[in-house]
Design a protein around this nucleic acid. Structure first.
Lengths: 201, 201
DNA sequence: GGCAGAATTCATCACCTGTTGAATTCCACG
DNA sequence: CGTGGAATTCAACAGGTGATGAATTCTGCC
């Protein structure tokens, strides 16, 4: 009676279960407050097994949140089409990702990025080298790196307000409305007039 | 010899020292990773004294981060003047607060808001009832609550990108440039054309 | 001078954390 | 049928956490 030691019969994919539990835990409780013991319990498994599969907690986090969405797959859809509606397409895709099953993972990354420098570095490197740089290369306007950073700031703010802080009425607004409201703002960052760099002195 | 028990001579304002240490700790390590023991040590004091002055850790946090800036004092300066430059004035003030000594406290609140629902509620209530509602009341356009929420999202994103994630070139950009770049975006949210609410079906 | 009360520390408690190493059980292959 | 290796659990370690209650020393007042 009770749970015996040793290998269990059948072949449940325990590894995947742990990963799923970790994903959930990190997403809704953040890195610090998500505990390995709790993740293990939630996966119906001993904590040591978590360490057996994924080493340390940091590694588990990396395994759990890696690639919530692949920019190499998504960006071309956004970049294709006329440049005058780039902003709206980007917001639409952004909301699509966050409202998808990948959303919680993204929330986990964002939560972790706020409290851990190494995770902030992670998201920064990801944004810069996987997303922003590619978009910037596709734009044929000057100051493209500044432009994409402004775009990133608005999108991060949108995610914070809508999914983390849950600020109303943004949190429960229709995606279509948000696209129409925020899209043009991004469009201006992309292709509109921006100030020159201030000349010192 | 060594540190004796009991009341110490002189009158160093220990309470203020604890508060300052707590402020620093919460700002740069967030709520979870800031420990009372460490705050106490950093203030040259026993952990129990921290509990003696401020009760629980939550209460200490509230005492440490309350009112990094008083909207009742700052908002009138922003709202005064012509409506066509409201956006720029708001960005300028926002950057002013974050670049001031109050900035770290603001960062602490933001960090905590991301990992704790009760703290997210805190910042949400603060934003809604102390800032957004007042600004909305001052605007004479329809949909003012939606407009201010959009503004809040852009400002939160700016804070995240510049002060938390430290995304370049935003992180080290000149405030004047940011004002000129982001101001008009906020201005559009405030007084520009926004889409109607989508009609369902 | 004595006494109330505030300031401060000490010594804990109970708990949770990540992590490790050994023990056990099962499966697959020879 | 046996054996090696993978899956899984148990038991524990070492450390950190917030919190509490009692003890001690000082200050200020009468």
């Amino acid at each position: 009676m009770g749970i015996r030691k040793g290998r269990r019969p059948g072949s449940p994919d325990t590894r995947a279960a742990i990963l799923a539990a970790a994903r959930d835990a990190f997403a809704e409780r953040g890195f610090d407050r998500a505990s390995i013991r709790q993740i293990a319990a939630s996966a119906g498994v001993d904590p040591a097994l978590v360490h057996h599969y994924f080493g340390t907690k940091d590694e588990l986090f990396l395994a759990a949140v890696q690639a919530p969405a692949d920019p190499r797959e998504l960006l071309p859809q956004v970049l294709a089409g006329d440049r005058e509606q780039l902003g709206e397409r980007l917001v639409r895709m952004f909301l699509g990702v966050w409202d998808s099953p990948a959303g919680p993972a993204a929330a986990g990354i964002l939560r972790a990025a706020v409290s851990h420098e190494w995770s902030a570095r992670l998201i920064r490197e990801f944004l810069v080298s996987q997303v922003l740089r590619r978009v910037a290369a596709e734009l044929d306007v000057p100051d493209s790196d500044r432009r994409v950073a402004l775009v990133a700031s608005q999108l991060m703010g949108l995610a914070m307000a809508r999914y983390i802080i849950k600020l109303e009425p943004l949190a429960s607004a229709e995606p279509a409305w948000i696209v129409a409201a925020v899209g043009p703002a991004l469009q201006r960052y992309f292709t509109g007039e921006l100030p020159d760099l201030p000349t010192m002195g």
